[in-house]
Simulated assay, not measured.
Amino acid sequence: MALAPYACHAADSRGRRHAEAPAPTRSDYQRDRDRIVHSSAFRRLVYKTQVFLNHEGDLFRTRLTHSLEVAQLARSVARSLHLNEDLVEAIALAHDLGHTPFGHAGQDALNTCMQDHGGFEHNLQSLRVVDRLELRYPQFAGLNLTYETREGILKHCSRSNAELLEVQEPGGVASRFLLRQQPSLEAQLANLADEIAYNAHDIDDGVRSGLITQEQLAEVPLFARYRSEALDEFPGLDAPATERRLLYEAIRRMLSAQVYDVIAATQQAIADAAPGDVDAVRRAGPLVAFGPDMRVRSQTLKRFLFDNLYRHPQVVETTDRAQVVVRELFDAYLAAPHAMKPAYAARAAAAPPGHGARVVADFIAGMTDRFAAAEHERLTGRRLLP
């Protein structure tokens, strides 16, 4: 497929931080994707929470299955927009590598622990993983990914952290936050595909868990429209024996409608902005987006999920205990760095005064749910999670 002139072309990449000879059979972005898939951090995503903790059921999404769904959605849209599918896939697969155990609850707890040490941002942590923490190559730390993949991974960044990164890497991936510019279209697309994917699969997981019902969802305009369409075409699908099929069909139609909406709205935005190349994309405003109506309906769905699923008392009760696990692990390792795995204990011992907390945060952020729970029990003698 011929790429659009405003797409990221691997041959025109800004390159890697450490120069490498090109691969004979793969583009640089394909190589990035392969390095991400083979990383330890990627494998650990299978035991990291999306909404429901790992012990709560085998069929609930994890960070790994979520990342795969984001990659699939993003590739589909990229092909229609003549963007670089390999790059958008690499970004999608890597976007959650820095996420803590226990989902957003773990992230919030670790950020609280790190308030006097620069805070904790999971997007910045994902960049740390691919730039520093993966240790697989003799020539350099990290995965040595291309600028464009790293740019997409760092989809959010506070100004203070952007300034620190800019000092370390002038004109690098953080400069756009200081210049108020956009990332590539591939990065914008991976970001929006993330939102589309988690709205859809959280509906599925929420109904599967019994915490929300299809009857409640029938009051949410975005879902209700496609559920109604499915029932019009397949009367009786809401019978108890087939209501799970009705849910899948409504979600499938909702996903398709969102994808087609993004394609149409983005094509129009690109036509209006008329960017001639990737640099022109970065100087333009956001170009990958929903149309106005779909944006409103998507936001309404997000509010519903926040109020009825993410803040459901059963979810909150579990995530509150998960936050205690993270906070007490942080305190324990800060007081006794030797309790961490040897490589991290050695890093903490070698860290300048006051910098040991970042090593502790790196260690905790890399944990799976079950390892964090087991470590907490080992260190405290208390079992807060199954």
Rank of each mutant, 00 (worst) to 15 (best):
P5E: 03
Y6M: 03
A7W: 08
C8A: 15
H9V: 08
A10P: 08
A10R: 02
R14G: 11
R17D: 14
A19P: 08
E20I: 09
E20C: 09
E20V: 12
A21C: 06
P24W: 07
Y29E: 01
D32A: 04
R33L: 14
V46E: 13
Y47E: 13
K48E: 01
T49D: 01
V51N: 09
V51W: 03
F52L: 08
F52C: 05
L53V: 04
H55N: 03
R61G: 03
S67F: 02
Q72S: 13
L73D: 00
V77Q: 06
V88D: 03
I91F: 04
D96E: 02
A105K: 00
T112M: 00
C113N: 03
M114V: 00
G118H: 02
G118T: 02
G118S: 01
Q125S: 05
Q125C: 04
Q125P: 04
R132I: 05
E134N: 00
P138D: 01
L145R: 02
L145C: 05
I153K: 00
R159A: 11
A162R: 01
Q168A: 15
E169Q: 13
P170I: 05
A174P: 09
S175D: 11
R176M: 11
L178F: 08
L179G: 11
S184M: 11
N191R: 12
N199H: 14
V207M: 06
I212K: 07
E215A: 15
E219W: 05
A224F: 12
R225C: 14
S228E: 15
L231A: 10
D232K: 12
E233L: 14
E233V: 13
D238I: 07
A239Q: 13
P240V: 08
P240E: 10
R244Y: 11
L246F: 06
L247V: 10
L247T: 08
A250T: 08
R252N: 14
V259W: 13
V259G: 01
Y260V: 15
G276F: 06
D277V: 11
R282Y: 04
R282C: 14
G285K: 14
F290S: 13
S298L: 07
S298G: 14
S298P: 02
Q299F: 14
F306N: 14
F306G: 13
D307T: 12
Q323I: 01
V324K: 07
A332W: 08
A332D: 05
P337C: 09
H338I: 12
M340I: 06
K341F: 06
Y344A: 11
Y344W: 13
Y344M: 12
A345K: 00
A346W: 08
G354P: 10
A357F: 00
R358V: 06
A361I: 04
I364A: 05
G366Q: 00
G366N: 01
D369S: 07
F371P: 01
A373G: 10
A374F: 11
R378S: 10
L379Q: 05
G381P: 01
L384D: 09
L384Y: 12
